[in-house]
Design a protein around this nucleic acid. Structure first.
Lengths: 137, 137
DNA sequence: ATGATAATTGCAACAGCGTTGCAAAGGATG
DNA sequence: CATCCTTTGCAACGCTGTTGCAATTATCAT
């Protein structure tokens, strides 16, 4: 009944506090995955610890998902559709541009079925591509 | 002309020092990818900094490659065949077992061609699978 | 509204990983 | 043997992420 962003939080059982609203808002405003550090710098009066906790609870509640793009710096992006508490549907491909350093989800690429040795029980497959993004060509 | 392990080092232009021999030896002895921490604990009298530098130079010379298995802890494994200075052929699939925590290379799985939006120039594709390994079933 | 309850925040302090500078030790080479 | 360059080990630092704790704030029932 308030704004849509508050509603997202409340529907996940999280209180709509200023920090959370701000962080969530900037997730919606960007289509890149962002690192905790980037968020911290974007608002320069946010508490580092609170931010980490915010991201953690967002992840647990299925609001954002964590992306490991191979740079060593974890990034977060909003979950698109059916992410749920404790269950992420982030089986899409992630792309990391070596030029601009941005990382984003490639929605329109289908994750292929990969035939694996029958001895391995595969629960999840993560695919990260590196290269040059559209803007940097 | 000495032992094969020394030869590997010398052929890459690295001196065969005790630390390097020990580290390289244990890479050959295991088919798992190992973290710096694990190596450090395995020999309990190795200097942390020296180990990091050793791994770095091994990686630069194409002796080992770094694996990011999504756990946040980097791991290293020996390069199999055609790795070269500054050029890693590590386009195989990596598997991380959620039970035993081991990570290893799945040699016999072919990395599929994945059709991507033409706007993206893909240079490298990393695939990490999670699940249960043979031993842990 | 008001007060009780529980969640959230912010600070201090800490732990772990990885890096750099620098001096000492060790091999290679002439 | 003397020199030079590589490698090592120590000290110190920076960054990321965590925990404990007290203060604050939102929620909910009354």
């Amino acid at each position: 009944m308030n704004d849509p962003i508050s509603d997202i939080l409340q529907s996940k059982g999280l209180r709509a506090t200023p920090v959370r609203l701000k962080v969530l808002e900037q997730f919606q405003g960007s289509d890149n995955a962002v690192s905790p550090k980037e968020i911290e710098l974007r608002f320069d009066q946010i508490d580092r610890i609170t931010l980490y906790r915010t991201l953690k609870s967002f992840e647990e509640k299925g609001i954002v998902h964590k992306i490991d793009d191979g740079t060593g710096t974890p990034k977060y992006a909003m979950c698109i559709d059916k992410c749920d508490e404790g269950h992420h549907h982030d089986d899409h491909v992630h792309f990391h541009c070596n030029d601009c350093g941005n990382t984003f989800c490639v929605e329109d690429v289908e994750v292929p079925y990969i035939k694996t040795p029958p001895k391995l029980k595969v629960a999840k497959t993560s695919i990260v591509m590196n290269g040059t993004c559209e803007k940097c060509q």
